[in-house]
Structure formats: C-alpha cells, structure tokens
Design a protein around this nucleic acid. Structure first.
Lengths: 124, 124
DNA sequence: CGCATGCTGAGCCATGAGGCTAAGTTACGC
DNA sequence: GCGTAACTTAGCCTCATGGCTCAGCATGCG
C-alpha cells in the first residue's frame, strides 16, 4: 500500500476538481475531441488543456491526435484502482468490527493492522 | 449529483494526501488520539493537526476531546459517497457499452457525439 | 495560396495547500 | 502549585494549482 501511495495521490487529486470529473463523466459516453469537451466550460482553452493533460498524466484518459484534432478516450482502469483502495479500507474496518466483538468477550492485544492479504474484486 | 459537486471536491481532495489516507487506514482499526495518530509521521504537530482538521471538516472523521486528549473516530459514510460516484460513472460507461453493442448489430446509428442525456452540469 | 480551425507553448498572476517555529492554553501527576 | 504532556493558535514561508493572455504552429478548406 505504501508503494502505490503516490499513484493514489495523483489519481485522487485528479478527481478533486469538478471540471475533471465532468470530463470523465462525459467521456464515459464515448471519445470526444478537446474543443468538444471544452465547449460546456466557460474557460480558456489553455486552462482546459491543463486539466486534460492532468487527466492523461494520471492515467484517467488517453489521447490521440489525428490531423489537427486530438481525441480523448476514457481509461477505465483507474476506477478499479480507486475501488481497490475503498475495498482495502472497508476490509480493515470490517476486521475491526470482528475484533470489537472479541473485545467484548475478552481482552485482545494491541490492534496492529493486518492487511497482508488483499482481495480486490467485489462489485455489484 | 450536481449538489454534491463541491462536496466531492473536498472528499476526493482529502484522499489525495498520503498522510490523510494513512490516518484513515489507521482509524479503520479503531479510534485513536491525535498524538497517537501523529507518532508515525515525521511532521510537526501543528502541521499534522491541519490534516486532522481537514479530515474532520470533510466528514471523514469525527473528534471528541476528553480532558486534554482528543480522540478521532472514522466516519464510514464518506466511503459510500465515493462509491456512489464510482457506480454512477460505471453506469454511464456500461450504458455506452450497450449502445456500442446495439451499434454493431445495426440497431442504432448513434455515433459517439451523443451525450445529451448524460447528467452534465458539472457546476458553474 | 490564403485564411480559418484546433490545438499548443510561454509566461504571468492570485490563491491555497502543506510545511515550519514559537508561544499559548488546559488538564494531569506528583 | 509546579512541571509536563497534549493539544491549539498565530504567523510565516514556499511551491503547486488553476486561471488568464498572447502569441505560435500545423492542418484543412475554398
């Protein structure tokens, strides 16, 4: 977990901006060009481009230039990364609930995390 | 979702820092005091406190002071918020996949420009 | 060819995040 | 009641973020 910490930093930070989240939502419906994506936003193109570049660098989208048009495509893999982290946290928390039960019936040792085995994959 | 836009901003931003994520992980194992939480980090207490306050203001934790010790507790509700956004994105994306299948079988003629029904709104 | 279109690069600016030290304040413990 | 432990407040510093403008460059169209 400590290793992908920096990856998670950028992945989560990318999501902390409404413009970028909106772009991801829109790209969920299919690829689109830069100016197409930028149209709904009241923002200068260079500013918008920074968001696009940010999303690309953090792996949320991929882009390809054809002629003078750059087309952006959603990369769905990052969703799994986020969900993986969520699952991991839930696992710890649910483990705590178990230990709490144990505590009620009898004293346990100092709770040190035991997240050694991580199983991500539990979607609806 | 439009209302949550700013909430999601702060919720995701809170996760974009490794210190804060580590605190959440640790709190998953049960409540802890400030100095207890701060111990693993090579950071001055006031700096660490900013993270704590950040987490509290964004709803990730709640704190309570008893005597001179402040105890922090994980608030698990925000996990659902994040997961809700993820599900929403997946739904859009999977809807696209459906349309793509329909397109292959010649049912529709919707190119990838069709995003009208998507909840775009971002915020402004 | 010449001009519009669609990005791209360079550089500036304001704000906020995240770190620090130093100096309180408020309980405990002796 | 004095000292120490555990925050807390105040103030400062630096760098990253997110916005802007003003060009520039490549491509497509008439």
């Amino acid at each position: 977990m400590a290793q992908h910490a920096t990856v998670l930093d950028s992945v989560f930070h990318a999501l902390s901006d409404p413009t970028r989240r909106a772009v991801l939502s829109r790209l969920g419906a299919g690829p689109a060009s830069i100016s197409d994506l930028a149209a709904p936003f009241d923002m200068a193109l260079p500013s918008f481009m920074k968001h696009i570049r940010h999303l690309e660098q953090t792996g949320w989208i991929s882009t390809r230039k054809a002629g003078r048009v750059r087309t952006c495509t959603l990369e769905t893999g990052q969703f799994d990364l986020v969900e993986g982290w969520l699952d991991e946290q839930r696992r710890v928390w649910e483990g705590r609930t178990d230990r709490l039960e144990q505590f009620v019936t009898g004293r346990t040792s100092n709770p040190h995390k035991n997240t050694a085995h991580i199983n991500r994959k539990a979607d609806s």
